[in-house]
Simulated scan of single mutants.
Amino acid sequence: MSTSGADRKTKWDIVSEIPSLHGKVAIVTGAKSLEKADKAIKQMKEDNPSLARDDLLHPLALELGDLQNINTVAAKFAAEEKRLDILVNNAALLARPLDLDKNGISVSFATNHLAPFRLTTALLPLLKKTAAEYSGVRIVNVGSDVHLKLPPSIQLNNIADFNQSFGSTDSAESNLFRYALSKLANHLFSAELQRRLDAEKVPIVTVGLHPGYVLTDGANRHIDKYHSDIRESIVVRSLSPLDGALTTVFAAAHPEVWEKRDLYGGAYVEPYGRIEQPSEDARDPILAANLWKSSEEALQRIGA
């Protein structure tokens, strides 16, 4: 059952209803290198000259595959910025074989969940400080509806659970399930973070979302490598990168999310702003609390 946002006349209502964000500070993860970040910033400045004139966009040197370095990056950002109004955890790896990072953790799970978990918790003091002075602070975690494909009764109590193979280290189904596991973790993190913020009476809204199937350059390469035989069926139901950004923009900046924060806080949102029902596991507060605990323990064990 969907609620709120469903009655929008068109997706472009979202764009027209976004207020000025002048004075706000935001982080959006996603660029795989400073070169790509610089390229994106250059394009945005060309499209919006006011951004270039006021020097409002800057790259953030953040390697999400290096869990030990995230605290350092967050501390440097907090030392240089007086506020943080919007944090969008957008970066993610698509389905891939089971490979482990230098810490012995699934690369998919480490990059897609543990990295944004560590970045967010490291920046929480600055986010809370901002929320105490200004309204509208938000944390947006970009997940996926692929979490709905997981078998039920998932456990996330330790690194072994993070590294589960789903029957194979490299098959189309097991690779998809590993990606789905990391996206389930994103949604559980959103819900648990909101519960903790509410318990502390901190006025921050956390939203988890599925942006749609977005045909980015990376998605195109992934399709060519793993799903070339069904490319046409994938493309026909995919969104352009511009359309794929709209749900994230809605969650990060639309007034409705703040005005109805009791509704959107910890919610699962799909294009273009509809609150939908996530999986049963994604709604399990015990699983969410266990994931928070096991995430902290894993990061502490590896010194991150």
Rank of each mutant, 00 (worst) to 15 (best):
E63K: 12
L64M: 14
D66C: 05
D66M: 06
D66Y: 00
Q68A: 14
N69H: 15
I70K: 03
N71I: 04
T72V: 11
T72A: 11
T72L: 10
T72I: 09
A74H: 04
A74R: 00
K76Y: 01
K76D: 15
K76P: 04
F77I: 12
F77K: 04
F77C: 08
A78M: 13
E81Y: 14
E81F: 09
K82V: 05
L84W: 05
D85H: 14
D85G: 09
I86L: 14
I86G: 05
I86V: 15
I86S: 03
I86K: 06
I86C: 06
L87M: 07
N89V: 01
N89M: 02
N90V: 01
A92K: 04
A92T: 08
L94N: 02
R96T: 09
R96L: 07
P97E: 10
L98T: 01
L98K: 00
L100G: 00
K102I: 11
N103C: 00
N103H: 14
N103K: 09
N103V: 01
N103R: 08
G104V: 05
I105V: 06
I105R: 08
S106M: 02
V107I: 14
S108L: 13
A110W: 02
A110P: 03
T111C: 05
N112C: 09
L114M: 07
L114F: 05
A115I: 04
A115Q: 01
P116Y: 11
R118W: 01
R118P: 02
R118A: 13
L119M: 02
L119G: 07
T121G: 11
T121V: 14
T121P: 06
A122S: 15
L123K: 07
L124Y: 08
L124P: 14
L124F: 12
L124Q: 12
P125C: 12
L126E: 10
L126H: 06
L127P: 13
T130F: 08
A132I: 00
E133Y: 05
E133N: 14
Y134Q: 15
S135C: 12
S135V: 10
G136Q: 06
V137L: 06
V137T: 14
